[in-house]
Amino acid sequence: MIVDCRIGCGACCIAPSISSAIPGMPGGKPAGVRCVQLDDNNLCRLFGSPKRPDVCSDFSASVDVCGNSNEEALWLIGSLEVETSF
């Protein structure tokens, strides 16, 4: 079930690896590393900008991926990253 993002969560900007270039991170970002575009309130500085990577814009929050808390989202997304890494 698709849900609204929890404002200030940021788990999708920390837990997964992102292979596409991000402004300030031209080689993408490794899993578990905070995106440089995530501000101190865990909000994306590129939200709504054409500079935002497609992988970020295409992400849809869901209970299966984001759970019921920020901590659960970090754990779930981190677990998915481990399970899908080669």
Rank of each mutant, 00 (worst) to 15 (best):
P23H: 08
E81P: 02
D64L: 07
K51M: 11
D39W: 09
M1H: 04
G67F: 11
D40P: 10
G27L: 13
G8R: 03
C44G: 11
S49D: 14
I22R: 00
G67C: 05
I22S: 04
N42T: 08
C66M: 09
L43A: 12
A31K: 10
R52Q: 15
P50I: 14
F47A: 14
R6A: 12
L80V: 02
I22K: 01
P23S: 11
G48M: 06
R45I: 05
G78E: 02
N68I: 06
G24I: 08
E72D: 08
K51D: 15
P53D: 08
D40T: 13
V36G: 12
R34T: 15
G32K: 09
L46P: 03
E71Y: 10
W75E: 10
I7R: 07
E81A: 14
V33H: 11
S69A: 09
V63P: 00
R6M: 10
G32M: 10
S85P: 06
N68P: 00
V63C: 00
V3S: 05
S69M: 05
S79P: 02
D58S: 07
I77H: 00
S69F: 03
I77W: 02
C13I: 01
F86P: 15
G10T: 00
A31N: 12
L74W: 09
A31P: 15
F59A: 01
V63N: 03
W75M: 09
A21I: 00
F59E: 05
R34I: 15
G32R: 12
L80W: 10
S17F: 06
M25Y: 00
K29C: 05
F47D: 15
P53W: 00
A15S: 12
A21S: 13
L80R: 04
F59V: 00
L38G: 05
A15I: 04
V33T: 14
G27I: 00
S69I: 04
C9Y: 05
G27V: 06
S79W: 03
R45W: 00
S79H: 10
S60I: 08
I18M: 12
A21M: 10
S17E: 15
S62F: 08
S62T: 13
S49N: 14
V3D: 03
L43R: 06
P50M: 11
V36S: 15
N42I: 01
I14Q: 02
E72C: 01
C35Q: 04
G28K: 07
P53S: 06
R52V: 06
V55I: 13
L43G: 02
V82L: 06
L38Y: 13
K51V: 08
G24S: 11
N41L: 13
A11D: 03
G8I: 09
A61T: 07
D4E: 15
F86M: 11
R45K: 13
G10P: 01
V65R: 00
V55D: 07
G8F: 10
M1F: 01
L38Q: 08
C44K: 03
P53F: 05
S79E: 15
P30T: 14
A31D: 09
K29D: 08
S85G: 10
F59T: 01
W75A: 15
G32A: 09
S19V: 09
C5H: 01
I77F: 00
